[in-house]
Design a protein around this nucleic acid. Structure first.
Lengths: 244, 244
DNA sequence: CCGCTCATGCACTGATGGGTGCAATAACCG
DNA sequence: CGGTTATTGCACCCATCAGTGCATGAGCGG
């Protein structure tokens, strides 16, 4: 079932390893880089754990699995991360950081544009292209899977990724409404509508079939354009009908 | 965290118990009702299992838990259902049947209406009210949670519930487009847009916070109306502007 | 080169949980 | 009532898995 999964190891969410967050021993390191052995171990474990957690979830991933994939002894994992829950938390939080950065970068300057239509289309293309990637989708799915066990983590993720985007969009729509370039008296609702028009179907499909096919580039463009078209039809002010 | 959860035991999805699907012994029963002991046991187990699976998921629910809640010996569960996976499958399939029935009943006669706007609003209200119920949302969540372990089940659920609705909507929009009452040249896309405009936010929130608050009646009306307004703005034919 | 710190391997504990075997008992049904 | 059939309780097997203890060895840094 779970096929080759090609463009999966890629990029984004390669999460920066928490390095040596809490230096494990009281010896105040000379500040010149902590012991390279620790770094190596932590990096190897973090990478292996990320892969396994993202693909199999928390429960189904055993610490022995992680140790084997990382090429490291189980004992080292416990020495470096405490326990499995802590490891999971650090991994996911690291990934959240990456997701957060992308979210911030996404919106950027929507409100500063003159041509709302073009700006929204560009945004939608970037948006779906960013979100419809295996690592991002798997992270989202993972959080949902473990939301019952790690409610704090789920809340943190939401705050830093999807909610951040919604908030930014809401502000942008508020501004554009004030300027008369959109008719969005309820900017939050408009932001939700935009998001689900563009992303809804893709996110939904992924939840039920995590190994299913992702939309191709052409499909993503179609989805984004259709979503934006519907959005603008609903929220463009009455008096402009420049293009069809 | 998980509070009282009031209107949760309720109704819909009380799933009809699979009764005595496969008569457990070769003795061709006299056709006059199978042994009532079997019925009782199966019913008690099914009810307990449904509650536990829906609230805690597959993994976190142990067979001993089910036995205890059902007031039945663990051995009886195995005698009646074979193993845990079979039990789970039967439970979920039963619930799917109920969901399927509701889905069918939902759309009914959209295409036969004269007043599309009113019909769509009514539909949207019923739609979100049907879907935003604890048992329904929990079933959906459960399927997603276990999609990796039971891919066939997940596919079956989709086919019988959400996809069924989408298909029915697509056909309705195709008809209304042909009659010039909507402008939906791509009726499938329109059906997706409708669904996510009306349900997206609610479904999404539930995934991350299964014990979170559900939208009140007033909120559901607001959500449905806003969704339909956006939908109609996007898909109503150019030349009618009856109401605002 | 010496001493300190990690990493390793491995055996081990303890808990959980699915699933079974069996003898005794209770409920059904003719 | 009497034979059949389901249920019960309980001990039990076995697998998995998180986490530990410890002795040994390798790699780092001064």
């Amino acid at each position: 079932m779970a096929s080759a999964d090609p463009s999966d190891a890629d990029d984004i969410l390669t999460l920066r390893i928490p390095a040596a967050r809490k230096l494990p021993n009281p010896a105040a390191r000379t500040d010149r880089g902590p012991d390279p052995r620790i770094l190596r171990t932590r990096a190897a474990v973090a990478e292996a754990a990320t892969t396994l957690f993202l693909h199999k979830g928390y429960q189904a991933t055993s610490v022995d699995d992680i140790a084997a994939l990382a090429g490291v002894s189980k004992r080292s994992i416990y020495n470096n991360f405490g326990d499995k829950e802590t490891l999971f938390t650090e991994i996911v939080l690291g990934a959240c950081g990456t997701a957060e950065a992308f979210a911030d970068q996404l919106i950027a300057d929507l409100a500063d544009t003159r041509d709302v239509r073009t700006a929204l289309r560009t945004l939608a293309h970037r948006h779906i292209t960013t979100v419809a990637r295996p690592p991002v989708l798997r992270l989202r799915r993972l959080i949902i899977l473990e939301a019952a066990r790690f409610p704090k983590l789920a809340a943190e993720y939401r705050r830093r990724a999807p909610d951040r985007v919604i908030t930014a969009l809401t502000e942008a729509f508020r501004t554009l409404h004030a300027r008369g370039e959109l008719e969005t008296p309820d900017p939050l609702r408009a932001a939700q509508h935009y998001s689900f028009l563009v992303l809804g179907a893709t996110l939904d499909a992924m939840l039920f079939d995590p190994d299913g096919p992702l939309p191709t580039t052409a499909e993503r463009e179609q989805i984004a354009d259709d979503g934006v078209r519907a959005f603008l039809a609903a929220y463009r002010p009455r008096r402009d009908r420049k293009r069809k």
